[in-house]
Each structure stands twice: as C-alpha cells, then as structure tokens.
C-alpha cells in the first residue's frame, strides 16, 4: 500500500446509540487498505476508546485518520469542556463517568491509559473551556508495511 489516506469522522456528544460507528468505519478503511490485522486491532481499540470519550465526556469533536507508509495516525479534537487534571485522568480506574454510562458497560477509567498502551506515540493537550486534543501514531510491525 502506498500514498497517504486522510478521512475525518464527526462524533456527536451524548450519541450513545451510534457510539462506535466511526471506529467501525475506520476499521473498514484499514481492512480495505490491507493493513495487518494486529495493527488494525490496536487502532480500532484506541479509536473506540477515544470515540466513547467524545460521546461521554465532550461537547462533540472529530477523529481524523491518516494512513501513511508504515503507520496509521489518529488526530482527535473536541470542543470542550477540557480535562481539569490530566495526570489524574491518565490513571487506570479513575473516571468521572455517570452511573448511566457505567450501566452501558463503560466508564471504568481505562480509556486514556488504553489509548496510550495501544499507540506507539501518544500526546494529549487539554485546556479548560477550550477542548482536548489527542495525537496517536501506530507503527506497522517492521517488515509488514501498511
């Protein structure tokens, strides 16, 4: 596979009914491009986690997918409200999700740490009242290419 592919997916705040659809589309794109399945799974997990965070915690945002030779990149931006304490938010098990969200099977406080675990590069910036940006790069295992 060669050449860069760029796609953008909007994620609506509170849209639990459609949560996961953007990640499903991302997975479909990667599969069509012949990206190795182990890499697809890592991207899909991180994408689903970030999509759920956008639905649960944000005022809405976008997930931008870029497929480059050798790697897959997700750039995520939301419209707020921002994360007050990033160090706390990165701890496994820490969550501000509501009981309603937990009833759906989410909000265990694993989202951000799980994104970081699956990505080869992970960067997060957040400003209260402005929003949160997350950059994740997933490298293809050497020799398999994307």
């Amino acid at each position: 596979m060669s050449g860069a592919i760029c796609e953008s997916y909007a994620v609506e705040a509170g849209a639990f009914g459609t949560a996961g659809e953007a990640s499903g589309k991302i997975k479909g794109v990667l599969r069509k491009l012949g990206v190795p399945s182990a890499l697809i799974r890592r991207v899909a997990v991180a994408s689903y986690e970030v999509e759920l965070n956008l639905v649960i915690h944000s005022l809405g945002g976008t997930i931008d997918l870029s497929v480059e030779p050798g790697s897959v990149v997700l750039d995520v931006a939301d419209r707020g409200p921002g994360i007050p304490d990033l160090a706390l938010a990165m701890q496994e098990g820490w969550s501000t999700a509501s009981d309603e969200v937990r009833m759906l099977g989410f909000g265990a406080g694993m989202g951000l740490p799980n994104m970081k675990r699956n990505a080869d590069e992970f960067a997060i910036q957040s400003e209260m009242g402005v929003g949160t940006r997350i950059h994740m790069r997933f490298r293809s295992p050497e020799g398999t290419g994307t």
Binding site: G17, A19, G20, G24, K27, R41, A44, V45, Y48, G105
Partner: peptide, 17 residues
C-alpha cells in the same frame, strides 16, 4: 462471556474480531 446484553457488547466484539 458477559451479562451485558445491550448493542455495545456486539459493537465491542465486532471491533475486536
């Protein structure tokens, strides 16, 4: 294996193959 019967179980399963 789960007792959670909402659509998110299938979505999660689908994403993880």
């Amino acid at each position: 294996l789960t007792g959670l019967t909402n659509p998110h179980t299938v979505r999660t399963a689908e994403l993880l193959d």
